[in-house]
């Protein structure tokens, strides 16, 4: 393998700075109390002002029951977990079929299962709100979870299809000819082999759900807050280096960070994220 050139190395460093550095000022801002133009660093820190503020600010505010951060965090996690579970359960059979069988109209089905990713969510969201109002699930957990399934299922199907593609059906057949029942074949042979892929699909669907803003915003109508909708209203009404917003940005980044660490630890492969989503498809498409 070729060594990276000097310009290449410089490029990598610049990119590293562009992606990692922006978190730093927010970290500083989250501990600031007064940080007005043109100060390069806060002129007063949070810990010096705690006694004199009329109400908690910054981290104190975020971690007090007032901010609503707790419920928002819990909502995000609950909605994310249920969405991910449903997405995986609903996508598993489809993925197995797409990986194992060729049939007429397969291309159409594959395309249909991909389209939600590229069709404007604002169109889906507005129509969905009216539909959900009709059946009485707008502004409920159910409504939000169902909304989140729209972008989650296509990814889950993609990931799980590649999982089944890598799973040789002959293992199953062999186990069954050796007298193993369907259930035990599934439990002993299939499950262990697909589990890492299923976990990835689950994590990926969770991440998608945890990062959705617009669909939640439209369907929840302010009644249920998640981390992204909470962050939205803070950015909308807050100053650039406002301590509370900055702290919230860091908290909202937590699910993603955890996801990244788990997926690295699970796969030991930094490229897995790309391969399991759409990279594999492109490879397959090569003429």
């Amino acid at each position: 393998m070729r060594r990276v050139s000097v310009t290449g190395r410089l490029f990598l460093v610049v990119m590293l700075l562009a992606f990692a550095f922006p978190f730093l000022p927010l970290l500083v801002a989250s501990f600031s109390f007064r940080w007005h133009w043109p100060a390069l660093l806060p002129t007063q820190w949070l810990w010096d002002a705690r006694e004199t503020t009329p109400f908690p600010v910054g981290w104190d505010y975020l971690f007090s029951p007032i901010s609503g951060l707790g419920p928002a965090f819990l909502n995000t996690v609950v909605i994310g977990v249920v969405t991910a579970l449903l997405a995986v359960v609903l996508s598993l059979p489809a993925a197995r079929v797409l990986a194992r069988y060729t049939f007429r109209g397969k291309g159409v089905v594959e395309f249909f299962l991909l389209v939600p990713v590229i069709v404007p969510q604002i169109a889906v969201g507005m129509g969905m709100l009216l539909l959900f109002m009709r059946i009485g699930i707008a502004r409920t957990y159910v409504g939000i979870i169902l909304a989140h399934l729209v972008p989650a299922i296509p990814y889950a199907v993609r990931i799980l299809t590649s999982v089944f593609q890598n799973l040789d059906p002959r293992y199953e057949e062999q186990a069954r000819t050796l007298g193993s029942g369907w259930l035990s074949t599934f439990r002993r042979i299939v499950l262990p082999m697909v589990l890492p892929g299923v976990t990835t699909a689950f994590l990926f669907s969770f991440l998608i759900s945890a990062n959705i803003f617009l669909l939640t915003f439209l369907i929840s109508g302010g009644r249920l807050q998640t981390l992204p909708t909470m962050l939205f209203s803070h950015i909308e009404s807050g100053a650039p280096l406002d301590a509370t917003t900055a702290g919230l940005v860091l908290i909202v980044s937590v699910p993603g960070l955890v996801f990244l660490m788990i997926s690295d630890w699970l796969t030991g492969d930094h490229a897995a994220l790309g391969r399991t989503s759409f990279g594999s498809r492109s490879k397959k498409e090569r003429p």
Binding site: P54, F55, P56, V57, Y61, S64, P65, I66, S67, G68, G221, G222, R223, Q225, S233, E236, S237, T244
Partner: peptide
């Protein structure tokens, strides 16, 4: 719910004032 000051007051003053009557206060910021 765009004011941290107001949100604080809702929690520290409005909530006990209302919950005194055995009514749980569900605050919805919107």
């Amino acid at each position: 719910g765009g004011s941290e000051a107001l949100n604080s007051w809702m929690e520290t003053s409005a909530r006990p004032d209302i919950e005194r009557y055995d009514i749980r206060l569900n605050l919805r910021r919107s």
